[in-house]
Design a protein around this nucleic acid. Structure first.
Length: 105
DNA sequence: GAGTCATTCGTTG
DNA sequence: CAACGAATGACTC
């Protein structure tokens, strides 16, 4: 069973176009949540894995964030790899071009 | 009902 | 700039 909150997150993340990324903070504020952690929780489940590009979501400090339940290791390694396919590159574990961040509005 | 979490901001050194 | 602590909101058991 999915909650309205999770659906909100999946909807917001699904709106992020290719070659662009978003942050937990932006998603959280976009759906009306004061905690970015809740967003990560919803993405962690990600029942719509291929439909919801959870790999297009990073931390607000331009860090890679987490992936597949891990915040470092092969998890984020695969995340950066996927982002690299989207023309989104990372440097030292941080987003290369902050302009890649997609902000609604 | 308590524990856990893929975060974020503020203070201190 | 770097490291630590406190706060927030929701999902899982």
């Amino acid at each position: 069973m999915l909650t309205d909150f999770q659906i909100r997150v999946y909807e917001a993340v699904s709106q992020v176009p290719k070659g662009r990324v978003s942050t937990y903070k932006i998603i959280a504020g976009y759906i009306g949540c004061g905690s970015s952690r809740a967003v990560g929780q919803a993405l962690r489940k990600n029942p719509f894995a291929p439909e919801v590009p959870c790999h297009r979501v990073i931390a607000s400090d331009l860090s890679i964030g987490g992936f597949k339940g891990g915040k470092e290791g092969a998890a984020v390694a695969g995340k950066q790899k996927l982002l690299a396919d989207e023309d989104v590159y990372f440097v030292d574990g941080r987003l290369k071009e902050k302009g890649r961040i997609y902000k609604p509005g």
